[in-house]
Design a protein around this nucleic acid. Structure first.
Lengths: 196, 196
DNA sequence: CTTTATACCACACATTTGTGTGGATGTCAA
DNA sequence: TTGACATCCACACAAATGTGTGGTATAAAG
C-alpha cells in the first residue's frame, strides 16, 4: 500500500470514523469537516485515496465509499521489533475482523451464543463463563463440540460422540459422566470467546 | 420492544443487512428491494419501525437510518423452549456485539492480537492456536496475563507475577519454568478467541 | 359504525449530492 | 523548464433523495 500524505490521512481517518458509525460521509460533509469550500477538492482527495488503494467507490451513489482495509481489522503478530516503543509490527501473520469473526459467511439468524456454566469442558480449554458461539444445526459429526438441549430445557456444551450407532454427549472433563439420556443437538460450536 | 408484522420485519431485515455492509439504504432502494412503487409506502414503514423503537432517523439526511438494537448483536441464551424447531429463545441473558468485543471503548490503535503458540497456558484455558487480543500497555498488575517481549523478539503470553520486588512470568502449565530473564510487558490480555 | 393500524399508490417539490468544467499555487524530480 | 503531483477554489447541472399532500383498501378493535 502506498504511503499517504498527512492531509490524505486526515481525510481517510474522517471517512473511517464515519463508516465505523455506520454512515459514510457525503462529499460535502467531508468538505465541511476538513474545512474545504469546494467539492472539487474532496473529489481530488477521494481520487488520490482510490488510486493508492485505500478505498473503493460506486459512482453516482451517495455515500458509497468502501474501505479496502477492514476498518476494524486487528493485526495478528508473532514477533515485534525490539526496543520500539511504537510497537511497529515486525511479523504480521494476518488480521482478524470482528465482523466476520463468528459469522464467517453466516447470517445473523443462524447464530446464537451460550454462556458456559461449569467446568465439564475444561480439558478442552472451555472455562466457566466463556461465551460459546453456536451455529444452528440439528446434526453434527462425531467429535464435534455441540450445544445440546437436555430434558429440562437446559442448554449444555459437550462433545458429540457416536459409538455402536448410539449418540451420546461426552464431557472433556473425566470427572463428569457422559450423557446418554434424551437430548437433541441444536447447534455446533464455531467460536469460543473469553473476556478478561 | 413491540412486535413487528411479517412485512415490517422484512423491511427491517433488509435495512439491517445493508447496514452490515456499511451502507444504509435510501428510501427508494428499500422500495425497489421490497417491490414498492411509491416512496410514500417506505416512509410509512420507516415511521412504523421508528414508532415501535427499532430504528432512529436523522431527517433530511440521505441514508441516515440507525438501528436501535445492535445490528450484529448475538443473543446469549441459557434455556430454550423445548420442542421448538425455530429456537425461540426462552431466556436471553444478554447480547454480545462483535464491534465492542475486543475494543470496548478502546481505539483500534490500542489493540493488537497474538496467535498463541504452545501449551504453556493450557491450565488457564488458553490453547495452542488461540487468538489473544492484547491491549497495549507497558505495565500490569500482579496476576494479570500479559503479552511480553522476550530477548529474541518473540512475543509470549504468560501470567505476570511479583515476588519480593521481582517481576517474573509464570506459565499456567507447571511443566514449564517461570521466566526471570529480560522481558518487557507490552500489553495485557483482554480477550481470548478460539475458532473451530 | 367509527376509529385505528396496516398496507399500499401517485405525484410534486425543495434539497442534497455526485460530477464536470475550468482554473490557481506550490513542490519536487527529471 | 517541463511535468507530475498535491492542494486548493468557484460554479453549474443533472440525478438522487427526503418529504409533503392526498388518495384507496382491508382488517381488527371499540
Amino acid at each position: 500500500m502506498q504511503t499517504l500524505t498527512d492531509k490524505q490521512r486526515k481525510v481517510l481517518d474522517f471517512i473511517r470514523s464515519r463508516i465505523a458509525h455506520n454512515l459514510p460521509p457525503t462529499i460535502r460533509e467531508i468538505a465541511r469537516e476538513l474545512g474545504f469550500s469546494s467539492t472539487g477538492t474532496v473529489r481530488d482527495y477521494l481520487q488520490a485515496l482510490q488510486q493508492k488503494g485505500y478505498l473503493k467507490r460506486s459512482k453516482a451513489l451517495s455515500r458509497a465509499i468502501e474501505l479496502t482495509q477492514g476498518s476494524l481489522g486487528i493485526p495478528i503478530i508473532a514477533r515485534i521489533a525490539a526496543g520500539n516503543p511504537a510497537l511497529a509490527y515486525e511479523d504480521i501473520e494476518g488480521h482478524i475482523n470482528p465482523d466476520d469473526l463468528f459469522l464467517g459467511r453466516l447470517s445473523q439468524a443462524d447464530v446464537f451464543a451460550v454462556k458456559v456454566k461449569g467446568v465439564s469442558m475444561v480439558e478442552a480449554g472451555i472455562m466457566d463463563g466463556d461465551i460459546a458461539i453456536i451455529k444452528k444445526q440439528p446434526h453434527a459429526n462425531n467429535g464435534d463440540i455441540v450445544a445440546a438441549l437436555l430434558e429440562d430445557n437446559e442448554v449444555t456444551l459437550k462433545r458429540l460422540k457416536y459409538k455402536a450407532h448410539t449418540a451420546f454427549l461426552e464431557p472433556a472433563n473425566p470427572a463428569y459422566q457422559p450423557i446418554y439420556k434424551d437430548f437433541s443437538v441444536i447447534g455446533k460450536l464455531i467460536t469460543i470467546i473469553r473476556k478478561y
